[in-house]
């Protein structure tokens, strides 16, 4: 319950935060919600030499729809997402299932995205909806598609002197629906298996865009491109979603662990992908 000693910087601007992070090297960490980082520090699994606290930076709590995107600033808490009426589809569906209510009051969406924990929920939602991550460094801002941002287990595409300032989730203009189905052992647990589904429908109800991504069943959140390709251009149906479920199960690479066997997790992927797509289609109206 006592972290190792570290230096602490309370940044008041993004530039200040980037400078402090750049100075400290790879043992410097950005502190936003701290709901993943501080628990690891308490049991000394993480021992950063410096923390750069961004909670005092004005403007990072932006949550708004602009230019066809939902902007989620680096200080938007999970609970803000639950409370907001700007969310939609899989984003809205996932928000209440992030950790537990108290952690949601403190933890941030961008922090969770940056953490790149394959058991984290948001990156599946972002992969399914095709979101971008906005990063700032000394040389300015760059927009990183989520698929490029998520590199591997606990590894993102940020440079040492960069920080995430916001994410941008495209807001569909036509008929759309989404869902996030999560199997967790109890509230507050990471997903055993979770599936994010996002569908956009065109004239006559044909699927024009499909997003399907998986949590906790691969070394990183996994976008199931085969299934997405199979869905586009088709009419929604139980058979189609079952086929997508099979493709999702095939794409996943779960492991045996205390949460269950790989075989069973693949079965949950199969089932949840089918159900999530059906829910997405139904909510698209």
């Amino acid at each position: 319950m006592f972290p190792s000693r570290f230096d602490y910087v309370a940044a008041t601007s993004v530039d200040e935060a980037i400078a402090a992070k750049g100075d400290g090297g790879d043992e410097t960490r950005i502190l936003a919600g701290g709901q993943s980082l501080l628990p690891m520090m308490k049991i000394r699994l993480a021992n950063p030499s410096k923390l750069v606290d961004i909670n005092g930076i004005p403007g990072l709590d932006v949550l708004e729809r602009v230019n066809g995107h939902l902007r989620v600033g680096a200080l938007v808490r999970h609970a803000d997402m639950v409370a907001s009426d700007l969310t939609f589809g899989a984003v809205e569906s996932a928000a209440p299932w992030i950790s537990d209510p108290l952690v949601r009051n403190r933890g941030t969406v961008c922090g969770s995205v940056s953490h790149c924990d394959p058991e984290g929920d948001w990156n599946s939602v972002l992969l399914a909806t095709g979101a971008d991550v906005v990063a700032r460094g000394p040389s300015g801002e760059r927009v990183i598609p989520i698929g490029d941002f998520v590199v591997d287990l606990f590894t993102n595409a940020l440079n040492e002197d960069e920080m995430v300032t916001e994410i941008r989730i495209p807001v569909p203009s036509g008929r759309s629906g989404g869902a996030y189905l999560k199997l967790e052992r109890k509230v507050g647990d990471y997903a055993t298996v979770a599936v994010a589904a996002h569908l956009e429908l065109g004239g006559g109800g044909v699927i024009t865009k499909a997003g399907l991504a998986l949590t906790s069943v691969a070394p990183h959140n996994l976008k199931v491109t085969d299934a997405e390709a199979a869905l586009v251009g088709e009419m929604p149906s139980e058979a189609l979603f079952a086929e997508a479920g099979e493709l999702a199960a095939a794409a996943s690479s779960p492991r045996d662990d205390v949460r269950g066997t790989a075989e069973w997790k693949r079965q949950v992927v199969r089932t949840f992908a089918r159900r999530a797509l059906a829910t997405a289609a139904a909510s698209a109206g």
Binding site: M1, A10, L31, G34, K42, D53, N55, N105, R106
Partner: peptide, 14 residues
């Protein structure tokens, strides 16, 4: 707002 005070640094509460 309710938070877990074991997961907030005291300096953050300044």
């Amino acid at each position: 707002k309710p938070v877990k005070s074991c997961t907030v640094l005291a300096v953050q509460a300044d």
